[in-house]
C-alpha cells in the first residue's frame, strides 16, 4: 500500500466526519428523558415544569389525533399512536 493511498483514505474519512458533524449539529432535539430531583429543585419549579411538560404532551397528542382523524389513517410519532382502524393498508 502506498503512502498516497493512506493519505487519500484519511482525507476521505475526515471529509465524511465533517459532513456527518454538520448534519449532526442540525439535530438539536434531546430525546433523553429528563430526571429532576425534588431535593435539588424547589417544589414550585418542579410543578411549573410538570405543567409545561403535560401541556406540551397534550397539545402534541391532540395534533396527532387531528391528523389521524382528517387522514383516516393510523399515525405514529415517537411512542404516541393514534389508531383510526384502517391499519395494514399497505
Amino acid at each position: 500500500m502506498s503512502r498516497g493511498f493512506l493519505i487519500t483514505i484519511i482525507m476521505s474519512l475526515i471529509l465524511i466526519f465533517i459532513v456527518a458533524w454538520s448534519l449532526l449539529r442540525r439535530e438539536r432535539g434531546v430525546w433523553t428523558y429528563m430526571l429532576l430531583s425534588p431535593r435539588t429543585f424547589s417544589l414550585e419549579l418542579l410543578e411549573l415544569l410538570r405543567n409545561l411538560r403535560e401541556a406540551s404532551k397534550a397539545l402534541g397528542k391532540s395534533l396527532i389525533k387531528f391528523m389521524a382523524y382528517n387522514l383516516q389513517l393510523s399515525i405514529s410519532i415517537d411512542y404516541f399512536k393514534s389508531d383510526m382502524g384502517s391499519l395494514n393498508r399497505y
Binding site: 432535539g29 433523553t32 428523558y33 429528563m34 411538560r53 406540551s56 402534541g60 415517537d78
Partner: peptide, 16 residues
C-alpha cells in the same frame, strides 16, 4: 404538522 407535534413531544421528554 408532525414536526410541530414532535417538537411538543420533545419538550415533554426534556425541558432543554
Amino acid at each position: 404538522i408532525a414536526h410541530v407535534a414532535r417538537n411538543l413531544i420533545l419538550l415533554h421528554h426534556n425541558i432543554i
